[in-house]
Amino acid sequence: MKKITIAIDGFSSCGKSTMAKDLAKKIDYIYIDSGAMYRAVTLFCIQNGLFDGNVLNEEKLKKQIAEIEIIFKLNKDTNKPETYLNGVNVEERIRQMDVSNKVSIVSAVTFVREAMVHQQQQMGKAKGIVMDGRDIGTVVFPDAELKIFVTASPQIRAERRLLELRNKGDQQTTFEEVFENLKERDYKDQNRAEGPLRKADDALELDNSHITIEQQMQWLLDKFNHVIDDEK
């Protein structure tokens, strides 16, 4: 069977990563979390003192960007891919609020996006991948055979994000903080100069505010099978 590229874009905390992981597992494709790559670069900046408040030292980062290696390894116990930054597992660390609050700053930098897009395109050369992010269908893989754009109401997205934080042991962050973080990220993602978040003209839109995970998966499989049948 011919393999295709599946690009999943959409707003923060729509469950894109979980959706993409589950779909990849279901159809035996490779999953690549592009958002985790930008989070990993953000963590690198935090760890190396490249932030002064919310101001990023772009000159220093530019000199070090070539040193940043991000790969994904499958955790054999959970059967889920995890993010490694220069050989260190940072999957849980990159999901914390200090990274969330600064990732939009880092991901808006032109040379960062160019470096990450290059890595992503190298990963996707062999097809048979599912990748999620903000500009996968518009910039990284504009020729992807299946493009999905995911959305949900801000209220529901904030509730999902807060639950995720609680499940990881964060009992301090408030709903209001998460909600404001989401609104700020939405604005930055949609208005940045490089690779802004937008629905590709040929993308299928999925609003998952009020559907179950099972219904969502069935919808995705139907769209996937439709494309595969057309490719035969």
Rank of each mutant, 00 (worst) to 15 (best):
K3E: 11
S12A: 15
S12N: 09
T18R: 10
K25Y: 11
D28L: 12
Y29R: 07
Y31F: 15
G35T: 01
Y38V: 00
R39M: 00
Q47S: 08
N48M: 10
D52M: 03
D52E: 13
V55T: 14
L56Y: 05
E58W: 02
K62G: 01
I65V: 13
I65L: 08
L74R: 12
K80M: 09
K80D: 06
V88A: 01
E91K: 09
I94Y: 00
Q96M: 10
V109S: 07
T110C: 10
M116D: 03
V117K: 00
Q119C: 09
Q121L: 05
Q121F: 06
V130Y: 03
D132H: 11
R134A: 03
D135C: 08
I136A: 03
V139M: 09
V150E: 00
S153W: 03
Q155G: 10
Q155H: 13
E159P: 06
R160D: 02
G169I: 07
D170Q: 11
Q171L: 12
Q171M: 15
F179C: 04
E180H: 08
E180K: 13
N181P: 04
L182H: 02
K183W: 01
Y187D: 08
R192T: 05
D202K: 09
D202E: 10
L204R: 07
E205G: 09
N208E: 07
I213S: 14
Q216M: 13
M217S: 09
L221T: 11
K223V: 11
F224Q: 05
F224W: 12
N225Y: 14
E231L: 15
